[in-house]
Amino acid sequence: MFGYLTGFDNDVFDQFERMRREMDQLLGDWSGGGGIRSAVAGSYPAINIGASPERVDVYVFAAGLDPKSLDISLQQNLLTLAGERKDESPEEVQFYRKERFSGGFRRVITLPEDVDPNKVNANYRDGVLHIAVDRREAVRPRQIEVK
């Protein structure tokens, strides 16, 4: 019985996800986020952002990128990523599918306001660029001891 319910739940969520995507396509991304600098869903590269009390982590899913071609800058809490992925396929071949992105890209991400632009760390591994920005200490939750 329980198993059946979970199955049903999954189905409902799948439907919601599909509906959300369709709505996004029709109306633009209004469902949360929709920042003035946000990019179209499905743009290269895909980005995930996570926050913990100590730092903000940005994961950029950018396969096949030359890290040297990447230009990352952080101005206050605005993170700008720019780069180019070259089309390395040989000429004079017959293409059946060309879904992979090639060309230049630029994305601007608004991070939480308490990030410290002087404490940024970036590394690129297996096609994922991980940028970690520390948050200022003042805003970290502090344990208050009762004496």
């Binding site: 986020g33 869903a41 895909a46 980005i47 995930n48 952002i49 996570g50 926050a51 913990s52 009390p53 100590e54 730092r55 903000v56 982590d57 994961y59 899913f61 991400i109 939480p112």
Partner: peptide, 12 residues
């Protein structure tokens, strides 16, 4: 991902 991370935004 670090422990206790909260997702702010996710394409993936």
């Amino acid at each position: 991902m670090p422990q206790g991370m909260e997702s702010l935004y996710a394409d993936v």
